[in-house]
Lab assay of single mutants.
Amino acid sequence: HNLTITQGKLFFHYNPKLCLSEIHKMEEVSGTKGRQERNDIALKTNGDQASCENELLKFSYIRTSFDKILLRWEPYWPPDFRDLLGFMLFYKEAPYQNVTEFDGQDACGSNSWTVVDIDPPLRSNDPKSQNHPGWLMRGLKPWTQYAIFVKTLVTFSDERRTYGAKSDIIYVQTDATNPSVPLDPISVSNSSSQIILKWKPPSDPNGNITHYLVFWERQAEDSELFELDYCLKGLKLPSRTWSPPFESEDSQKHNQSEYEDSAGECCSCPKTDSQILKELEESSFRKTFEDYLHNVVFVPRKTSSGTGAEDPRPSRKRRSLGDVGNVTVAVPTVAAFPNTSSTSVPTSPEEHRPFEKVVNKESLVISGLRHFTGYRIELQACNQDTPEERCSVAAYVSARTMPEAKADDIVGPVTHEIFENNVVHLMWQEPKEPNGLIVLYEVSYRRYGDEELHLCVSRKHFALERGCRLRGLSPGNYSVRIRATSLAGNGSWTEPTYFYVTDYLDVPSNIA
C-alpha cells in the first residue's frame, strides 16, 4: 500500500525493539523526510534493546553428524571492536523451508527459537588472519532439518551509529543413524509349514526405512522333555500350542467401542483428552525405555581390526524358502538304536541362519518350516543398504507352526516275539517326523474274553527296548493296539495285532 503524509511529521519514542533503520525507511515511504526535528525521533529510546544489523554474515563451514552440527561463519568486528559482546545463534526444527525470524513471537518477546549466546573469538592483530567464530550444536535429532541463523550482539553506541551483522536463515539436516526397533511384532501360524509375521514401523526411523531383515531359527525343545518319565503317576503330560491366527481386521481397528449394538453396526467412541494424553505418555515412556535398553543392555560386537582377528559373527547367506525346513542338525536320541526319531534339535552355532529381506511392506510369510516346531524370529529395521547396512537392534518374537495331521501315527506293522515265561516283546517304529517329539506310547492289549488293559511306555523305555515287553501273560489269544502321544496330543491307534500265548508248562520236552 502507498502511504503519503502531505502535512505533519513523524514522532517515535520509547520503541526499544524498533531499529532506527526501520524508522528511516518509514520517513522515505511516507514522504516526511526532512520535516522531523532532532528530538522527534529519539536516538536513545528507539532500538536500544534490539540488534540492528546492516551487514550480512556468511557461514564459512558446515559439518553434520547424526546428532551434531558444527558451524563456522566469517569474522565480524565493528569499528570499535570492544562493542562486540558476542553472537546469538538461533535454531529450531523446520520440516519445511518457510521459516521466518519472527515465527511464534508474542507480545512478551518470546519466540519459538532456541538461542545460544556465543563469546567472540580472540581478536588477531592481523586483519587478514582473524579467527572464524563458530559453535557445535549438540543433542539434535537424527535425520531432522533445522533452520539456523546467527547475528551479532553489540553494545549501545553513544554516537548512535547503527552497526551489526546478521546471516540469512539456512537449512541444515542432520545425518541418518540406526533406527529404533520395529514396533509390535506379531507372529502367527496359518499352516503346519508357515508363519505369518506382521509389525509396525519404528517410532524413530532416523532416516528413510529402506528394508527390513527377518531372521528365523528353529528352537530346540526343553531338555526336561527328553529326561522326564511322563508315565509316572502324578506327572502331567506336557503340551505345546501353536500360535493362533490373526483376529479379523475389524476387531483390530483402534479407537473402536468394545460393545456392539445388537441391531447392527455401531460407531466408534472418540477417545477423551485424558485417554489420548495417557497414550502419549505411555508411548514416550516406551521410547525412553527402549533407548535405555539399547544403550545399557546391548553391547556392540567388536569388529575385526587390522591384526587379522576374525569377526566372530557368522556370515549372512541367503537361502531359498524351500530350504528352511531342514535348518537344524538332527541327532538321534540314543545312538545305539537307529530307529528312534531325530527330534532332539541342538543347533550348531556355526550354522548360517536363513533370512529374508523385506522391502516396502511390514509383513512376511515364512514358508518351508517344520510342522509343530518353535521358531525364534528376529526382526531388524534398516535405513541404508549400501555401502553397508545400517540397521536397528533386533526385536524378537516366537511362534510355533501348526501340527501336521497323521504325523504322530505309527507307520509300519507292530511285530512281536514270544519268549519263555510268557513274555512277549512288542516292537514298532517311532514316527519319523512327529509333531514336536514323542513323549510316550500307549499300549492297549486284551486277552479274548477279558477286559482291555493299558500300559504306558516312556520315551526312554522305548529307546532301550525298541518297544516294550509284556510279562506274566496268561495263555490265550491276544490283540494289541499302540498309539503315540506327542507334544500336540495323541496320534491314531494302530491296526490290531494278534498273537497267541501258550502255557509254557505244557511245552513238550526233548528229553527222552
Score class of each variant (00 low, 15 high):
residue 211 H to Y: 14
residue 215 F to E: 04
residue 217 E to F: 03
residue 218 R to G: 12
residue 219 Q to M: 03
residue 222 D to I: 11
residue 225 L to D: 03
residue 226 F to P: 12
residue 227 E to H: 13
residue 230 Y to S: 11
residue 231 C to S: 01
residue 232 L to Y: 09
residue 232 L to W: 08
residue 236 K to F: 04
residue 238 P to K: 12
residue 239 S to T: 10
residue 242 W to K: 08
residue 244 P to W: 10
residue 245 P to R: 05
residue 245 P to M: 11
residue 247 E to L: 12
residue 247 E to W: 13
residue 251 S to L: 08
residue 254 H to K: 15
residue 255 N to R: 03
residue 261 D to L: 13
residue 262 S to R: 13
residue 263 A to K: 06
residue 263 A to F: 08
residue 264 G to R: 13
residue 266 C to G: 03
residue 266 C to I: 09
residue 268 S to A: 15
residue 271 K to G: 02
residue 273 D to P: 15
residue 274 S to A: 15
residue 275 Q to T: 06
residue 277 L to W: 09
residue 278 K to R: 05
residue 282 E to Q: 11
residue 282 E to T: 08
residue 282 E to V: 12
residue 283 S to F: 12
residue 286 R to L: 03
residue 286 R to W: 04
residue 287 K to F: 02
residue 291 D to G: 02
residue 291 D to Y: 03
residue 294 H to S: 15
residue 296 V to R: 06
residue 297 V to R: 01
residue 300 P to H: 12
residue 301 R to T: 09
residue 303 T to W: 11
residue 305 S to H: 11
residue 310 E to R: 14
residue 316 R to S: 10
residue 317 K to S: 11
residue 320 S to A: 15
residue 324 V to E: 10
residue 326 N to P: 13
residue 329 V to F: 15
residue 329 V to T: 09
residue 336 A to D: 14
residue 337 F to N: 01
residue 338 P to A: 08
residue 340 T to S: 11
residue 345 V to W: 12
residue 345 V to P: 08
residue 346 P to V: 14
residue 352 H to F: 09
residue 355 F to A: 08
residue 359 V to H: 08
residue 360 N to K: 15
residue 361 K to S: 11
residue 368 G to A: 10
residue 369 L to K: 00
residue 372 F to S: 05
residue 373 T to H: 12
residue 373 T to I: 14
residue 373 T to D: 13
residue 374 G to W: 12
residue 385 D to M: 12
residue 390 R to H: 07
residue 394 A to P: 08
residue 402 M to W: 05
residue 402 M to N: 15
residue 402 M to D: 09
residue 406 K to M: 07
residue 408 D to F: 00
residue 414 V to R: 03
residue 417 E to T: 10
residue 418 I to Y: 15
residue 422 N to I: 08
residue 427 M to D: 03
residue 427 M to Q: 08
residue 432 K to W: 06
residue 444 S to D: 13
residue 449 G to D: 07
residue 452 E to Q: 14
residue 456 C to R: 02
residue 457 V to L: 15
residue 461 H to L: 11
residue 468 C to H: 07
residue 470 L to N: 01
residue 471 R to N: 05
residue 473 L to P: 03
residue 473 L to A: 04
residue 483 R to F: 01
residue 484 A to R: 00
residue 485 T to N: 08
residue 485 T to V: 11
residue 485 T to K: 06
residue 485 T to G: 01
residue 488 A to L: 07
residue 488 A to M: 08
residue 490 N to S: 06
residue 495 E to V: 10
residue 499 F to K: 01
residue 504 Y to D: 04
residue 505 L to Y: 14
residue 509 S to L: 14
